[in-house]
Write a protein that binds this DNA or RNA. Structure first.
Lengths: 251, 251
DNA sequence: CGCGAACGTTGCGCAAGATCAACCTTTTCC
DNA sequence: GGAAAAGGTTGATCTTGCGCAACGTTCGCG
């Protein structure tokens, strides 16, 4: 049950700003299809973009840390975010993955002053961000922004609930199977072999999502590979037979 | 890991309305100290109360069921609510306990049309409720209502996160210890012996909160009783030495 | 190019805790 | 008041998957 020792380096904070507000380059069409902005006019989106900072983070770096003052909120333009908590004794637990197109770091929407967890770039990522002080304005001014945000939160609550239930009632094998399926649903890429998880992911990462050890994940993945269910290289997992994997994850 | 079989009867829906809107009896002072209403005037609270229905539910009955259409939202005036999810194969998992004074069944705040889980009365309870259509009005009209609601949600998210981390990193003994501590914090009653959980709770209930079996809970509780840590009768648990229990729950 | 770090694999033994089973106690309800 | 149901205890056994350990492989960097 206990995830094995330290394992991972302390998450480093992202480096200094690279592209700080080179935002005039960004087109309105980037935001317009995204739920929080879908009901807005082009001009409104322009206004929003003009207030945003844009920045990239290298894989493995943190956008913000748990308990840090929530001075900005973010939108993930590209890549995937891993939301992790770190326990007193240094173990990491991944509570959530956030695919591109979603808001994150929205402590304001939960009535918090600090971020509830650390956001780590799973791959190289591109994010927009706004100062927290604009949150109220956005909620009040832009129709659909608030409601879509709360839907996002609702979905995350649902996902957390699902994890609690899985950990309570499923065996390790089933949890891992389901975790992989969730990942390819959220951010899978079609390949000739099957559906690939579109960001680098280690056995350790998977173990942190499923409350087990990298050893167990490794064994399982090896067994599944022999069986033609998955195919995995270093930091790469391809699900070849999602259906059979889903069957494994049932009951 | 897998919680033992059926165990509990399917949660019955609460009976027919007993006190449907005998609300004129209720005093404004009931709501005024509660966070969602704390910034409101007496007259505003009166208006809110006039629109509410009041009702009691017997212990073990459901106020609403998972996936039911969310036609009302609720305030728990007295008692404790157990929020449970039921898996396909009939196992129950408790995700949360809600103490009196809090809103619940607030699917609207999560952008949902249906309730995400079942709310079961842990003891006899008293609830106010309003039609979902009033949600928007409340949020728009009453200052502090929205922000306090989102704080509540934030707290619940935090609590769920805590559970995920505990299940990922702690052993059964520690999880149970912490679960008991959380319960006495939320709804404990001082007694000469120690602090008592102020609603009836079975070993099975505890096992559903901690992802174990009632057997393991029973053994642990027996051991702790011998040790003077707790004292328990049928459906009753008193924590005699919270401090030592907290130590048990660490690391 | 070669070394070290990060990542991955695999075998073995052991312990935590689930499962099975039997039995007891208290409550409920006809 | 007595049977049945709900709740609780406790022992014996069995399985999962963790801990530890040793080793292989790939990658990145000086």
């Amino acid at each position: 049950m206990t995830t094995s020792g330290a394992g991972k380096m302390p998450v480093p904070m992202g480096g200094l700003a690279f592209w700080e507000s080179a935002v005039h380059r960004l087109d309105e069409s980037l935001l317009s299809p995204l739920p929080p902005f879908s009901r807005l006019e082009r001009t409104q989106i322009r206004t929003i973009l003009d207030k945003a900072s844009c920045r990239s983070f290298a894989a493995g770096t943190a956008v913000f840390q748990e308990d840090e003052k929530a001075e900005r909120f973010f939108l993930l333009l590209d890549g995937t975010i891993r939301v992790v908590k770190i326990t007193l004794d240094g173990e990491q637990v991944t509570s959530l993955h956030i695919p591109s197109g979603q808001l994150f770091g929205i402590a304001q929407a939960l009535g918090r002053e600090t971020y509830p967890a650390t956001a780590v770039a799973a791959s190289e990522i591109l994010v927009l961000s706004w100062p927290a002080s604009l949150w109220q304005t956005f909620v009040a001014t832009y129709p659909g922004f608030a409601s879509e945000t709360y839907k996002t939160i609702g979905n995350r609550v649902t996902e957390m609930n699902t994890r609690i239930i899985e950990m309570s009632t499923k065996h390790v094998e089933q949890r891992i199977a389901r975790a992989l399926l969730r990942l390819i649903n959220q951010s899978g890429t079609r390949t000739p072999e099957g559906i690939e998880i579109s960001f680098p992911i280690t056995r350790q990462d998977v173990s942190e999502m499923t409350a087990t050890t990298l050893h167990t994940v490794s064994r399982l993945l090896s067994a599944w590979e022999k069986d033609g269910l998955v195919s995995s290289k270093r930091k790469k997992i391809v699900v070849c037979d999602p259906h059979r994997l889903a069957v494994l994850g049932e009951t």
